[in-house]
Structure formats: C-alpha cells, structure tokens
Design a protein around this nucleic acid. Structure first.
Lengths: 233, 233
DNA sequence: GGCGCCATGATTGTTGACAAACAATCCGCC
DNA sequence: GGCGGATTGTTTGTCAACAATCATGGCGCC
C-alpha cells in the first residue's frame, strides 16, 4: 500500500476501487478485462498491480490474477520483477520508435498481400473508411479519426490473410497504444496523415501490391518522424 | 524417453520418463529447461504435456509447471485447450511459410541497421562465421553449418541494436526450429545458401544497408521457396 | 446387435493456507 | 542527533488438497 512516486508520478494507492466493478458482474474473461483496463488507461504506466487487489477488484481468485499477469507479461504489457510484484510497463520513446520500425516492415508486407488477396467486401469496407476519414477530418473529429485509423490498419491486416503477421502486429500495437493515442492528438496531425491513409486505401483498391507497400512504408515513416514530438510518456 | 511416431498420430501414453532427469539436478530455470526440451525435440510436436508428469520429471511443484505452460503458450510453443491439457504445438507448412515471410520483412530491417551500426567486433565475428561456413560446406559438416547459420542470424540481429525486432524474431525462430532444421538437412541445401549467407556478410561488412537488406531478402525468399520440399512435418 | 446412459478414472482448474522475500519502521546505542 | 540492527507489515511464491471436467468402458434396453 502507499509507496509513492514513480516515473512521472503515479500515485501508489491500492486501487481506490471507487464505485463500479460489480464483483459479480461480467463472468467474461478476466484476461480481456485486465488487458483493456491497461489499454484504456484505467491502469497507468508504472502503476503497481497488486495481486490481492486485482483479485478483489475483478472478483476472481488470486491464482487467476496470477495467471493473467504472467500472460500479460508475455504480451509485453506488464513488467514483473522477482519478489517485488507486477506493474504496468511503460514504453519509452526510443522503444516506441523501434516498435514503429518493426510495424513498418510487417505492415508493409500486409499491405502488399492485402492488395493481392483482399475480397470485394474488404475493398468496400476500405472505401467506407476512406469516406468516413474525410468526414472526420472535415469535422475536426479527432477521436473519431483515431478510431478510424485503428480500423484501417486492422482491416488491412485481416485482409492480408497473414495470420502470423496479424498476431505480431496486434501484440506490438498493444504496447504502443499510448504513444499512438498521443500522436493522434497532435494538432494538425490528421491533415498530414489523411492523404497517406487515402493513398494506402487507393493502392489496395487498385490491387497494386508494390504501391500499397510503399504507401504503408511512407505512412509509418511519417509516424516515426513525428513520434518524438509527443514526449516520452 | 521412447514415445515415437509423430506425423499423423502421437501415441497418448503418459511420458514413460525412462532413466534420466535427476530431480535434484539443475536448480536452473524450469522455464528454460522445458523450452529447450521442446526446441531440442525431446518433446515432439503434438505430444501431450501432462502437468503431473512434468512436475515429477523436473522436480518442481505442479503450479510451477502450470506457470511455465502458460508462458510457453504465449510464446507459441505450446497449445492448450480448455479442460483437455497442453501439448507441443505443431506448426503447419503454411504457417512456417508465413513465419518466414514475416522473418523476411523484419530480418531485412535488421540487416540494414546492422550494416549501419555494427561494431568492429561484430564485423570480426561475421568474418569468422563466413570462414567457418566455407569450411563446414567443404567438409560436408551439415550440423556444423546449421549451427553457424543460427549464429549468423543471431549476430545480425544483435548487431542491429533493434531490441524489439530481436525479440520478435527470437519468438518466431522458436516456432520454426523444426522446419529450419529439416531444411538444413536437405541434400544440396548448403550449396545454395552458402553464397547467400556470404553475400549478407559481405554487404554488412561493406556497411551498405540497402545491399544488406536485399541480400537478406533474397536469402529468405530462397528459404520460403525451398520450404515446401521438407514436407509438413 | 446397436444405441444411449451411467459409473469410473485420469487431468485439469481452483482454493486456501503457509513460507519466503523485501521494504519500512522503530528502538537502543554511541 | 544520527546510525545499525532487529522487528513488523506487506506482498509474492509455493504447496497440497479439493472440486470440476472430460474421456472411457461397461451395462442394460430397445
């Protein structure tokens, strides 16, 4: 309990557990719930994850929580040290850049394969996303655009039919959500990325693998270039 | 440890656990030991991994084994189904190809970065590997060549300084060892891959990122092309 | 003779309690 | 008043026993 000041300053109170979290509610996977709590920012980076607390909060036994923590550690979302417990892993700016570099390599592969193998339905979805993106930018809807961005990349991944690449990317995305999110909030960012996104979509719809690959590469190169502007956390 | 026949059907006997495996020996990480048992082929693909058996075999409690199994499941080496236990995951030929495709993308990145950032010591190691590879091929030392192959790729990865790529590749390699190994055993394979390996080394030693990247790409494209000849396992 | 049902055995999943490790606090002593 | 060492409290790691689940084999019934 107590135990203060980490990274920037994450208060170390044992989960206040204010109102919500009906203990009986949601028999649904605890793994999912904890993962989302981290991804949604309910659990901040460097925040301690005490097994007993989570056990109460999610209404499951400590062993269940323990298993969840080892799984999330494997996914790179949680950091665990010897006899000192687990905490939400904070990814540095340098690592965020490395992650984006790997993403660039793998998503370029996916874009090329998507251009070859996308179904007509995939292409229709892509067109919808393109239209919605244009609208979101016109309306200044930053959050909506961010969500569309996520959907675009997800659609390209699944359209590629490359399951291994898909899982690798899913993993990397999880570690990077925070940086991704802050990036999307940069003023003027959407204006830069919109044409890149549209070009990716166009290339895939034209079924041109090479063009799709370079479009994706260019887009992520731009992301990497911009990343330093969001600060290290 | 007997227990034969993999391909279609793995007999379902609880590991006979013949002689070895002193229970008191090796206080060393159980995770490592189980992982190596899988990677070294002591545990064959699709072989059941019964918790109680492993518990006895490795001289640790069942909970420890349980934790190890969830971790290895996260690494993609073990497959677990609901209330039916764990088994060594068998990767299909199709998946092996997908894995190699992703490897191609990421290792190309590493090769380029290695060409930029390799230390003089790295370059010296690479030259030694090149020489040893030539000798191994001349002597027909297939196993030695296979090990050198592993070392070459490992050296390129670490020389790249791209930690994220490194961990992704390490993961993928683990899932692919069996196919990799069978590939190395193909007659005449070394004669094909040797010049490719030498070209990778040359390109990095020349500090030419583009050349290193395409050399690595070409090499892995050749691997992917040859993979179907080893059968699906 | 085949089909379905129940008993049995083998394995996994879960729980609770205990031991070990670490951090913080408190006390006496210099 | 500050420092070293023991003590307390908190949290993780481990263990053994129990409950739940699934597969298997035998038995009766149609």
């Amino acid at each position: 309990m107590s135990e203060g000041i980490v990274g920037s300053v994450v208060r170390e109170m044992r989960s206040p557990m204010s109102a919500g979290t009906d203990p009986s509610g949601e028999r649904g996977d605890v793994l999912e719930r904890v993962r989302h709590a981290i991804l949604d920012g309910q659990f901040m980076p460097n925040q301690r994850l005490v097994e007993a607390d989570l056990s109460l909060q999610f209404g499951v036994s400590r062993s269940a929580i323990r298993a969840v923590l080892t799984q999330l550690t494997g996914e790179g979302l949680v950091e665990r040290v010897a006899n000192r417990g687990a905490r939400v892993r904070a990814v540095s700016l340098e690592e965020a850049i490395e992650i984006s570099e790997v993403r660039m390599a793998v998503e370029a592969l996916c874009a090329a394969k998507a251009a070859e193998r996308a179904t007509d339905e995939d292409l229709a979805v892509l067109r919808e996303i393109a239209d919605a993106m244009r609208r979101a930018v016109a309306d200044g809807d930053v959050l909506g655009y961010s969500e569309l961005n996520r959907r675009l990349h997800a659609t390209v991944r699944t359209a590629s039919g490359q399951h291994v690449a898909e899982s690798v990317l899913e993993r990397l995305r999880g570690q990077n959500v925070r940086h991704q999110f802050r990036l999307a909030l940069l003023p003027g960012r959407a204006a830069v990325s919109l044409p890149q996104h549209l070009e990716i979509i166009e290339a895939i719809r034209a079924r041109d693998p090479r063009r799709a690959e370079t479009a994706m590469r260019d887009h992520l190169a731009s992301v990497i270039e911009t990343l330093p502007q969001v600060g290290s956390s």
